[in-house]
Design a protein around this nucleic acid. Structure first.
Lengths: 213, 213
DNA sequence: ACCGGAAAGTGGATACTGTCCACAAGTAGC
DNA sequence: GCTACTTGTGGACAGTATCCACTTTCCGGT
């Protein structure tokens, strides 16, 4: 029931940065209610502009949603990076590789639990697989998928994975955490307590590590 | 099944089986376009009835969608059962257990690829975890989650899993196939060829089997 | 410095959607 | 057979996306 976030009537006819304002408004809506809550008219309302103004910047609601999705993906990437940056490469490359993989998995899962709306939005619309859209990345310039690949590369380089097993392993690893995230967020595991989910996450990463070999 | 699902004008004022007709119509819409395509007015239209008639059988659109979701879940269960029934218990319990687990995973994944709309609908709305709704089950009277539990029980009984590892293993196993399914259906792996997905599915089941231990 | 075209925002209209209320048609129980 | 209850109808309202025609503003070439 919260209303006008920005009630101020601008003096200029031009908004100046409408496209950005719309994406930001959309992001907030996504955060609060997932992809279905990203509604074009509401975004224009929050930007203090008439509904049709949006059509000067987006072909339609779908395109706005896509821009919002991109922003959400970027947040996911940032969360993973944060988790990865907690450890630096030391004298034990294998331990570092393991920590990297774990960081990707738990960063992913953690973000899903912390920001369910954004997470669901990030993966609600089919984007291209290797979409190299800068809007999807965080400070390292890598999207979530590429961050996972990086962790798996470290596993292989340190001798934890054979070349053959390394092949397409990102899809297997990704599936596990993604699945758990969605089962918890919008699936039958909806009311599972947070700690239990995180414990399961740890077991999951371990399972991947052992099961890949 | 005797009523006209199509748009023929019925002679009787009473429809006779409206609730069912609405769910059926909703199921078709879900099949074609996923959860968002389940629209109340369209369902009444297909049932040849006025929009408000639906409110005599459902509190609102959400409740209709929930009934449709239940029907979709039941289809998932049926698909898994089909896959499981391809093998009977023989003299090697461990091999049977492994086949059961594989059947659950591949039945799940196979259904997701065969019926994307229904699959997405089945898991789009948070139901209770252990919801023992008969509408969710197939001929064995078990929902998908319980079928997975059954397979894991067979693993434990045949000595493939320790009691400790068996604990909550369904969540780990489920996450993997569910994740792959969703990544393929509505995620970044959208355009991956069908055979590749199935190969990944096989590797995934193997990973679970090895990784759980 | 002008002036004309392009860009950005407005207003109005249409066609959907879900949902509420008052009413009518049919059915079942006494 | 009369009455009460169930089921379906009609009309209305708010909210949504989107299209069209119009206005306001900016900017670049002369």
């Amino acid at each position: 029931m919260k209303k006008n976030v920005t009630i101020e009537k601008r003096k200029t006819f031009r908004h100046g940065d409408l496209r950005n304002a719309l994406v930001t408004a959309g992001l907030e809506m996504a955060r609060a209610g997932g992809p279905n809550a990203v509604v074009l008219r509401e975004a224009t309302r929050r930007a203090g502009v008439s509904p049709n103004a949006a059509y000067r910047h987006f072909a339609g609601q779908a395109e706005l949603l896509d821009a919002v999705r991109s922003a959400c993906l970027s947040r996911v990437a940032a969360a993973i990076e944060d988790e990865m940056n907690k450890h630096r490469a030391g004298r034990d490359p294998q331990a570092f590789a393991r920590k990297s993989l774990r960081a990707v998995g738990m960063g992913y899962l953690g973000f899903a639990m912390r920001e369910p709306g954004m997470f669901r939005t990030a993966f609600s619309v089919p984007p291209a697989v290797h979409e190299q859209n800068p809007a999807n990345t965080a400070s390292m310039g890598l999207n979530p998928f590429q961050l996972l690949s990086l962790a798996l590369d470290r596993m292989q380089e340190s001798g934890l994975l054979s070349k053959k097993v390394r092949q397409d392993a990102e899809y297997l690893a990704w599936s596990t955490v993604h699945g758990l995230s969605l089962l918890v967020l919008e699936g039958p595991l909806h009311q599972m307590p947070r700690e239990t989910v995180l414990e399961l996450g740890e077991r999951l990463v371990l399972m991947v590590e052992r099961g890949l070999g």
